[in-house]
Design a protein around this nucleic acid. Structure first.
Lengths: 340, 340
DNA sequence: ATCCTTCGAGATAACGTTATCGCGAGAATA
DNA sequence: TATTCTCGCGATAACGTTATCTCGAAGGAT
């Protein structure tokens, strides 16, 4: 096996369909037909072409095919972090693969400018569609792309400034379930620490928690702590909630980062005494002591639905915009059943 | 903002450079120059073209550019799992971005056929290069692609059947460090449970562990347990190692999955008594009790090096093939310091 | 005043594929 | 036997961009 000829010191030139056609002694179009399994090609031609393909190690250039046909067979996913535990993304990849679609995933990395870069880049690549876990505040800049027919689906949060399909969890019910679970185990002073209300899900969850408190005739003061997830802020919130005349005996954490930060702040002894229900599944939740009771999002369902919504929009760009709310489930493991 | 005109019920047609040129009253080539910031264009032409671009909401088609220029500005990463904790992949993405490269990541999912599909697909897309965390046994089918100039770098494991650049951890030293650490804490009967010796890293680590035992004048029998990572197999290995006349007082686990399986099998009480050093960092290792002492791979270094090796090969396809061994570090957290 | 250079813009040919059209040969029909 | 139809393959034009070449105008030197 010898290195392919190079032209003027650069990369070696790869054989193209023209080369295969010449080698096989047939027309270019016939090679294309064979490559695409067109049944109207005679067996002897198929044999000749396949022999030439093998002899030259020809591989079709996907870029040229995409340019010509107009479709890429690829969808984009702009999520906060690839390479972190992300069951939605895993489900997206699985569903996309099952649909014969390639997935191009990129991390927005909690950076609004980067999110924009990624989305614009995906539009320039003319992907067949984009799933985005939106982070930025305003996505109106995507309106021209929507007008031009780019299918976009939002995941976990809606997008502001544009109207697109969306799939997300039932945040309000999840908080209600967590609260109710602790209430049933005898807790009356239940606190909440979660993400900033500037973030959509943080807002929804904090609002739902306040509503749950009021619905049970409890006051709100000193119990609801949305904000940035930093060790300092969480420590301060814990301090407010757990000390004082009427200390909370139970805690709901609004997302995974908050849950882990709280556990680290509390330390093992305090964590073993405080009733805790976390929003979001936590890796290794079963290995902690006590094992962690959480409100788990149906992440696989969310990812799969995102792809299905996207495919539906690709198939029919004119269909009405749709929002799918996916229910959440309580995973009882121990930490949420500590009595008051 | 009105929907772009559609042609015969299909997707709306996007404006092209030709449309912009017509709108601006300039030549096609001039639009291309403006889009590519060619400084030789007069300011009044730039203004006209930019106005036309804004008026039509023109976005260049990356596919056509790639076809014409021959480079995609994209590298592929075929790893076992995206959407799981994968610091190497995170480092690859970061390094690629800093180099102005787009990353196309896909999960081989521990499936040899799928790995092949992904790699072949990446070759068909004419990506600028591929980083692969190899899984399959034989990659000779990639030889034609290498001959055609496709740059490939292996990560974590070498590839068999072809000769490509590779970056991986110093497995032997890591096992030696783990063994030595436990030995220093007074342990004499130290067992090993790890991945199958059919897997490259599993083989390297098991071999290194046997060597460590012999170097310290210990016998090997009943102490070294490579194999599939299943609950049953690990339970049996634990049983053999920890019972009997000379039970092991310390354990080295060969990778993250083994570590977690061992912890789940032992349960909290037994885990708190057994000295344990794991190979590979474990998420939430600091929250476990006792916190987990591990031999951590320098994953960021590995991912970054992979991109750098790839870029070097892209720049000079003829350079000699290189293997980079990255040292590992011991993270002392508690589980490995339990005395005999 | 003429020539040569430079500079900026336009015409046109690629890149590697697929889609449209056409055409010749053989089969089917009158 | 002449005519139509079908079938299978080939020539050629796109797809949307960049690269090469050309060319006219302006400016400086002789």
């Amino acid at each position: 096996m010898t290195r392919a000829r190079r032209e003027s010191g650069g990369r070696p030139r790869r054989p193209t369909m023209v080369d295969v056609a010449r080698e096989a002694g047939v027309a270019l179009r016939t090679v294309s037909r064979v490559v695409n399994n067109d049944p109207t090609v005679g067996p002897e031609y198929v044999a000749k072409v396949e022999a030439a393909i093998a002899a030259l190690n020809y591989r079709p250039d996907e870029r040229a095919r995409q340019l010509r046909t107009g479709v890429t067979g690829t969808i984009g996913a702009a999520v906060r972090r690839i390479a972190e535990v992300n069951p939605e993304l895993a489900a997206i990849e699985r569903t996309a693969r099952d649909s014969g679609l390639t997935l191009l995933a990129a991390s927005t990395d909690f950076d609004e400018a980067r999110e924009r870069d990624i989305l614009v880049s995906m539009c320039r690549q003319r992907l067949d569609g984009i799933i985005v876990e939106p982070f930025g505040e305003n996505h109106a800049y995507l309106q021209p792309e929507l007008d031009a027919g780019m299918p976009v689906v939002a995941m976990d949060r809606p997008m502001s400034g544009i109207s697109v399909d969306c799939v997300m969890s039932d945040n309000a019910s999840g908080i209600g379930i967590a609260f109710h679970h602790l209430h049933q185990h005898g807790h009356r002073r239940i606190a909440y620490i979660g993400d900033s209300e500037r973030v959509f899900s943080g807002r929804e969850r904090a609002v739902a928690f306040r509503a749950a408190l009021r619905a049970h005739g409890e006051g709100v003061e000193g119990l609801v702590h949305p904000g940035e997830i930093t060790a300092e802020r969480v420590a301060a919130a814990l301090d407010t909630a757990l000390r004082g005349p009427e200390p909370a005996t139970a805690l709901v954490t609004g997302n995974m980062d908050t849950t882990l930060t709280v556990l680290r702040q509390l330390g093992p002894q305090a964590a073993a005494r405080l009733a805790l229900v976390g929003f979001d599944e936590v890796p290794l939740a079963d290995l902690l002591q006590p094992a962690l009771t959480v409100v788990a999002q149906q992440t696989a369902e969310i990812g799969q639905t995102a792809v299905e919504l996207l495919r539906a929009r690709i198939a029919d760009p004119g269909r009405p915009v749709q929002t799918v709310i996916v229910p959440v489930t309580l995973k009882v493991r121990g930490s949420g059943e500590i009595p008051a």
